[in-house]
Design a binder for these strands. Structure first.
Lengths: 309, 309
DNA sequence: CCTTTTCTCTGACTAGAGTCAGAGATTGTG
DNA sequence: CACAATCTCTGACTCTAGTCAGAGAAAAGG
């Protein structure tokens, strides 16, 4: 059985198991959609518009669901204090009790599932689930080239700057960030998970190669013989809550691939001694330390890697 | 977040991911129930009664689903040659093509999911899924005490005997198996997965202890002070397709617990040098080798363990 | 102030997934 | 052979989970 077949098989098995579990704890007379809605409203309440986008519901449908829940005395829907058009749903006391019930039934059915396992087996299970989730999250991230003034990228770079300001003992001047429109020859990659930006990185030409195709764009690089341009990789950043999934590695190698296809033979990058994980990443990815080549005061360390097909 | 919450969280994430996947490959105009039915009928065809029990469908509903599929030319439903009441569904040529399409769409969507991962990450994913499946299968097994003439147990013991006959160089005489009705003081445990027998084991009193409660049944043991009877564990067996999940370990410790609660302080067991996994299991479970105590020619090795609460 | 946009609600409708109560044909059994 | 049991099918319903097209109120923009 190949990998794909193994994954399909696991999916079949797992959904079946989960189906049994869910039927058990949700099958208490309440329709699934109402239960989900109770979950989403949660203890703090939520605006209808917010609920609609989060759950992907039709506005008419949500309205009816809420009506049903409020007829049952579980939810109250009140006008937004600041905006008379929008409304806010909150759980009533009974609704909160119902939600607690749902949660505890869910917990109970999971506990019953885990009961026959030893402590060691349970933590193995949890560990394996965690690993799967990391890998699936990583797989769900898409990388796409964007302009250097793309608002999402500027947002990432702002976060990047703020983080460096906190981590560098000497602080960080945001003016060091690439200014919009100044990329020149190069590519900015933006990483998105379900549309939400979770990382970025860019490469930028330092000195053109001898082959003629370098500056003429996407289609030229691969065909133009030995790649010989030199580029710099900059602003490689992964959002804090998306770290540990191998996304930095993926961004880095995507940048390398892209640079290579544009006739770049060597990439360099500068970094700071206080960025330990980044340095470890570069070393693991085959970068070798070189004398610092950059005038930026933050780039106290420099690395280089020769790109090969 | 505790283990239960982590498992719930994973379940939520995974079902959501799978939902997206399934929508993608099944959402080709065909209702889910029809697609499932095509899967279940499969290349070989299936009897309606069989389909109903396997899929848990109402007979009227199944009838209508099949009608719809046969109207679409995907399935033909023909009378059973031997029994005029029952009927058999088989895929037509077009139905087989449709099923192949479904399968390849499913494969494609899994392949697209895996595409961003490196080979190492993919095999990690598959490995973690395999581990989860093992643990869930183990957790799904229920152990229950049964009589020594229970048909399921006799079936297990027959398989056990056949296996030993193959593995022992000297063969194995099935007459060595415990005869129905001869257990005496002791317990037979049967392991079932979804109702299907997957293993068994028993303990049997060798010599009673000094405390008075030993022979008087379930309620006596725990309260009767220090456990001091001696029992033998026999016929511990796990079906071939349920091995590697830790089920042997679970059966063994359930037998120990049960024996302890009946006033047994020491358990012994005999085994054969060619049963390497079993010997490793006993050692790992805290058994120490002792001189062979048994007249059975197969029990060339013997182990013992003192039971403690 | 008028128009456009935003937000929610109502009414009308649909498809999917079942359930339930027989009817009809066939087979097994005393 | 009569009667019970088995198997499938039909008709009549139900519930869930939506979709779609407006209507009406409030807010934002020029």
């Amino acid at each position: 059985m190949d990998q794909i077949e193994l994954v399909r098989d696991f999916n079949r098995y797992y959904t079946q198991r989960l189906g049994v579990l869910n039927d058990h704890y949700l099958g208490q007379g309440r329709p699934l959609s109402e239960a989900r809605l109770l979950f989403e409203i949660g203890g703090a309440g939520a605006g209808l518009r917010d609920l609609r986008t989060r759950m992907g519901l039709d506005s008419g449908y949500l309205s009816r669901l809420l009506r049903s829940l409020s007829d049952q005395g579980l939810v109250s829907v009140d006008p937004h204090p600041g905006d008379g058009r929008s409304r806010i749903a909150t759980l009533t006391r009974a609704g909160r009790r119902e939600l607690d019930d749902l949660n505890s039934r869910s917990r109970d059915s999971i506990a019953a599932l885990l009961e026959p396992l030893t402590e060691a087996q349970r933590s193995k299970l949890v560990g394996a689930q965690e690993q799967i989730r990391r890998l699936l999250r990583l797989a769900a991230v898409t990388l796409s080239p964007v302009a250097d003034d793309d608002p999402s990228v500027r947002g990432c770079l702002t976060s990047y700057g703020k983080e460096l300001a906190l981590r560098f003992p000497e602080g960080y001047d945001p003016a060091t960030l690439i200014a919009p429109g100044t990329l020149g020859t190069g590519t900015v990659l933006l990483a998105r998970e379900e549309g939400v930006p979770v990382g970025c990185g860019l490469w930028q030409l330092l000195s053109p190669g001898v082959s003629s195709g370098v500056a003429s764009g996407v289609s030229s690089g691969v065909a133009s013989g030995a790649a010989s341009g030199v580029a710099e990789i900059r602003h490689l950043w992964v959002a804090a809550d998306a770290r540990g999934y191998g996304l930095g590695r993926r961004l880095l190698s995507a940048l390398e691939q892209d640079a290579l296809s544009h006739g770049i033979g060597v990439v360099r990058l500068g970094t700071h001694p206080s960025l330990g994980e980044a340095i470890a990443l570069y070393r693991a990815a085959g970068y070798r330390e070189i004398p610092s080549y950059d005038s930026s005061p933050y780039n106290q360390l420099a690395f280089e890697k020769a790109l090969v097909l």
